Amino acid sequence: MKLLVVEDDPTLLDFICQGFREQGYTVNGLSDGHEALLLAKDQPHDAAIIDLMLPGLDGLSLIRELRASGHNLPILILSARHTVNDRVLGLETGSDDYLTKPFSFIELQARVQALLRRRTDSQSNTQISTSLQLADLTLDRISKKVTRGETLITLQPRELSLLEYLLENPGKVLSKTMILEQVWDYQFDPQTNVVDVLVCRLRSKIDKDFSPKLLHTLRGIGYVLKAED
């Protein structure tokens, strides 16, 4: 496995890189955001660990650039910024997980392994079933094409992940915590509205102009995807 680590503290950068190399990973460690972007575009990596406070190009901008250029590698933000808003912004920008400093290397390693495992499982599931459908709503897992009847629907990556999770569990009530763990690979304050916002965005695209309604809210419990009775 090949990791990209972007951290401007040289001592911490060496610590992280050495720790993963001892676990058998190939690691590219950089301290500059622009250099990291060029390297990521030039060489494939299996996952990335990115600090937010970087010279040249800050971490959030780096993640945006990577996502905009089509890179779908798992990204973990490692930052001293620890508020809920910081975490939500990082996750909404395109990261898959968020770990605050100070941190335990054992936890960092476990989180990276979880991201890599989830990516492998997702690829395996795609080989088993390339299409998911409920009523006239269809998701092609290979092309990422979503349609409702004859209408093509454009979804952002996080919206697409949520829809895929819902379609994998039709008729099953999914709590906020379940969605956070599946879509973001992260557990944080269940009172945050990040899930509500994402569900609202998805509903506006797959349900607003269609019938029957498929995405339902069970107040205080969670969400369920099913054809309206």
Rank of each mutant, 00 (worst) to 15 (best):
A80R: 01
F103Q: 05
S104H: 12
L116E: 09
S95A: 07
R64T: 11
N72M: 13
R117I: 07
L76I: 05
L99N: 00
V84Q: 12
V84F: 07
F103T: 00
Q109C: 10
A110Y: 04
L108D: 08
E107G: 08
R67T: 07
P74W: 00
Q109T: 08
T100H: 08
A110F: 02
N85D: 15
V88I: 12
T93K: 09
S61Q: 13
R119C: 14
R87V: 13
A114W: 05
K101E: 13
Q123W: 14
L78H: 08
L89P: 06
N72I: 15
L91G: 06
P74A: 07
H71P: 00
R111L: 03
D86F: 03
R87G: 11
S104V: 04
I63S: 01
N72C: 12
N85E: 15
A80D: 03
I75S: 05
L78Y: 05
P74Q: 00
V84M: 11
D121I: 15
L78D: 04
L66S: 03
V112R: 06
E107N: 11
H82T: 11
V84A: 11
T83C: 02
R67S: 03
G70R: 00
G70I: 09
L78C: 01
Q123T: 15
R118T: 14
L78I: 03
E65R: 14
Y98D: 09
S122A: 15
I75K: 03
T83Q: 04
D96I: 03
V112N: 04
I77H: 06
L91V: 10
S104L: 10
S95T: 03
D97A: 10
A80I: 02
I106V: 12
D97S: 12
T93I: 08
E65I: 01
R81Q: 13
R87S: 12
V84G: 09
A80F: 11
R111H: 05
H82V: 08
Q123V: 15
E65W: 00
S95V: 01
A110E: 05
S61N: 12
R67Q: 02
I63N: 07
S122D: 15
I75Q: 00
Y98L: 07
S79T: 03
L73D: 06
L76Y: 08
S104E: 12
P102C: 06
L99F: 01
L116A: 01
E92C: 09
A110W: 02
H71E: 10
S61C: 10
S122C: 14
I63K: 05
L99G: 03
T93V: 08
I77K: 01
A110M: 04
A114D: 13
D121R: 15
L62T: 06
Q123I: 15
P102T: 10
H71D: 11
T120D: 14
L108H: 08
P74T: 08
L62F: 00
D97T: 08
L116Q: 09
S104M: 08
E92L: 10
T83I: 04
I75N: 01
